[in-house]
């Protein structure tokens, strides 16, 4: 395997538990540099849990999770993040006691090569005008933009985006879809959890289908229409 093809993320037989309950049952998947993969599946299939396990936010996990070439199974969450991971949680995780600027600047720079403030304001012009408002006073769409913008500053190269379009107006969903395309074009490696099949299929190289904490199928992203009936059975739509 050449250097360039070493996966940015390689998960092998990952098992994880919330307290007593066994939630991930031997997840195996890999993501190559610059690739965009989605995790799809019904509610409760283990998509969010998989992202949280990658970050080490589930303390009880077994198996192997190699991020950017390093085994992380024994590391703490902050040590994993420092390898160059950016996490955008499902509920956006905007802090109410921090203003927009503080929210944006909160994640420390992990690696060189992150976007500058000017670049971010070019992509997210709204954030600049709301700089001193409390973070949670923004609209849902603006909060989502802020949640993504703050991890682009840090130099993270592997982004974990958990349902970035959930609960947003169609026009904002389109904007976020375009943004994800831009991020892919810039070379970010992205794992996207997405219920919106339109967004999920637009840019993805591969889809991993999860069910009950297992990867039950893998679908190539390219020719979506051919796979649509199959995907739809998994999603139950």
């Amino acid at each position: 395997m050449s250097e360039a093809q070493t996966p940015h993320l390689a998960i092998t037989d990952l098992n994880a538990w919330y307290g007593e309950s066994h939630v991930l049952h031997g997840i195996t998947l890999d993501v190559k540099p610059g690739e965009l993969v989605t995790l799809i599946g019904r509610n409760g299939a283990g998509k969010t849990t998989t992202l949280r396990s990658i970050m080490g936010m589930l303390k009880n996990r077994k198996g192997s999770v190699r991020c950017l070439g390093q085994e992380t199974i024994g590391l703490r969450t902050y040590q994993i993040a420092r390898l160059g991971l950016g996490f955008c949680p499902e509920d956006r995780g905007i802090f109410a006691s921090l203003d927009v600027q503080e929210n944006l600047m909160l994640p420390p720079v992990l690696k060189p090569g992150g976007m500058s403030e000017d670049e971010l304001f070019a992509i997210f012009p709204n954030l600049k005008t709301r700089f001193n408002s409390p973070g949670t006073k923004l609209s849902g769409g603006e909060q989502q933009m802020l949640a993504i913008a703050r991890i682009l500053r840090t130099g993270a190269s592997l982004l974990l985006l958990d349902e970035p379009t959930e609960g947003l107006a169609p026009v904002i969903v389109k904007q976020i879809g375009r943004l994800i395309g831009q991020l892919k074009a810039r070379g970010f490696t992205i794992i996207l959890v997405e219920q919106n099949i339109q967004i999920a299929s637009q840019w993805a190289d591969r889809h991993f289908v999860l069910e009950s904490g297992r990867v039950v199928d893998q679908v190539e992203g390219g020719d979506l229409t051919a796979h649509m009936p199959r995907l739809k059975t998994y999603l139950g739509v």
């Binding site: 969450t77 902050y78 949680p89 995780g93 802090f95 006691s97 921090l98 909160l106 994640p107 420390p108």
Partner: peptide
């Protein structure tokens, strides 16, 4: 202040 609200998310940013 952020960690008061959600320490696990603050840690996920590398702090």
């Amino acid at each position: 202040r952020a960690a008061n609200e959600r320490s696990e998310l603050v840690e996920a940013f590398g702090i």
